[in-house]
Amino acid sequence: MKKPADTRTMNFFDCNCSYGVPSHPAFRFARTPAELLEEMDWCGIDRGLVYVAGLRYGSPVLWNELTAPDLASQPRLEPTWGILPSQTGEQSPPEQFVTQMKASGVRALWAFPNEHHYRLDGVTFGDLLELLTEKHIPLFVKLNAIALGELMKDFPDLTAVAVNQGPHSLERYLRPLFDTYPNLYLDTSYLLVEGLIEEFCERYGPRRLLFGSAFPDNCSGSALLRLTQAEIDDEAKRAIAGDNLERLLEEVRI
């Protein structure tokens, strides 16, 4: 059995956590960035790539603008924005949108197609997704595996991070996608099923796994202890804990 890593030397960078006030709150959640940091401190999580709850449950029209100023004084928290189709005029055309991202220090985006009622495909997002691909901007995608497969078929080189893939084991859907698309990444927040992290690393190596807690949907400590005790080597744990996300963000060209 591999010796567990010394977690005190690991840098945890949570790719999937949020603050803000949803209409149906968790029993405990973070209303503000400061409360999110307190939760991260409690668990020993160093940094977070963050979305505000309004970005998912409300409208990005309102919350994209508010996220970056909210986090300006929190160096441990990095903002993200959400996308909408530009055809309705709710979001700027792709080039302008990316320019706005740069001005606000945003390096990653979220897509919530079920919450915001659109199709995440080439017909709806062709120009934007081509631009994201060209600029290596990671798109965090909360989408079931069948729709995810359709997205990747249209944009095989897109840097996409599949999130919340569980809690059931979805390997029969996901492995064909990960076998086919090398820029498809996976967050660990819903890898509850024992052995999934280990087999992912064995099959693909650790570079496409990103530590995510899904706080406050889930308890931060769950994904944290799961990764810490995974039967993979320390180097793989460090990559998943934070280095992979750091690398993805450094590769962004805007």
Binding site: L192, V193, G221, S222
Partner: peptide, 12 residues
């Protein structure tokens, strides 16, 4: 089990 990791559960 063999579904959910005891460590994921214990973490909560």
């Amino acid at each position: 089990m063999p579904w959910y990791s005891p460590h994921f559960a214990a973490g909560a």
